[in-house]
Amino acid sequence: MDKHSYHDMWVYVEHDGNSVQPVSLELCCEIRKLADVAGEKLWAVIVGELAKEELARVLDCGVDKLLIVRGEGWTPFSVDAYTQLFTELCREYRPSAVFVGGSIQGRDFAPRFACRLPTGCTSDATELVYDPKTGDIEFIEPAVGGKMMAVITVPEMRPQVGTIRPGTFRYSPTGPRCCETVYEERSFPLEKIRAEILDFAPDQEDDSLNLADAEVIVCIGNAVKAEALPRYRQLAQLLGGKLACTRPVFDRGLLPFKLVIGQSGAVVKPKLLFSFGVSGAVNHVTGLSDAGCIVAVNKDPDAAIFHYSDYGIVGDMDEICDLLLQQLEG
């Protein structure tokens, strides 16, 4: 494969017709910078119709080229259709890199079209660096539970495919550039879609589950005892804040997924965050990077969470919680 015959960086724009997923806009902004360094163009790939105002938001990220795919078989999303679409588009247009938001959809189809092409696929990079010597992108990501950082490259194959988690990069549009639009008319045969959505029940709008705008958060980690949960809820209420947790707490079935903070969950920006019994794995703390003041309580003095905190207390989480409740009430 002559990798030098592959040019331009693509971002797949995930949308539902009305609104674009924030991660796609974050990616457009970040890949804009990367493409400038590499001297390549930034393409936004949009499948299906998208509302005008939302299209303007995509363009505002400085996109050079819009590739708009029109036709049958793209809505609703299916892994079968999108895998085939991206395989074909990559073979015809030869982009040097394709970036896909690390949503459930993105993580379902991006590694699959990479496999079909075939080419290399990386996931969850937290930093992207263009190496002018090799022309390769360095995908830098936490590895081994965040204990080390690994640099991943795809030195011989193209395109370089990467899924990136929501909230990894900032949405910081630099304004529209002169943009060309290319329309692709193509369809996917419905009978080739092997998974049929029977119904979809949207989650109830429940403000207690919306962490994005919370000013105070009480976050509990895997050390929490199930029976102690109410007191942390009480502390959150007393502080006028919201209860949140780490992924293992959700896995234990104690709290809903919407309350998970971290790479695979919510990215939060409270003024104050209390962290109880949280070890401080990278996957979790990436969701805290915009938090104001962080107070960590953990019985392990070596817990990594203390390195991300403003104040740390080594002690029994339940005891500290009870004391906070007492002193705040008193």
Partner: peptide
């Protein structure tokens, strides 16, 4: 197709201010 040319330890900031008074009550 993916290679790992290098790894390095994550840069971790200094620990925050650790609070430890003579009793948990006072610390809180």
């Amino acid at each position: 197709p993916t290679k790992v040319p290098r790894t390095y330890p994550p840069q971790v900031g200094e620990r925050g201010r650790m609070l430890c008074e003579e009793s948990p009550e006072k610390t809180v």
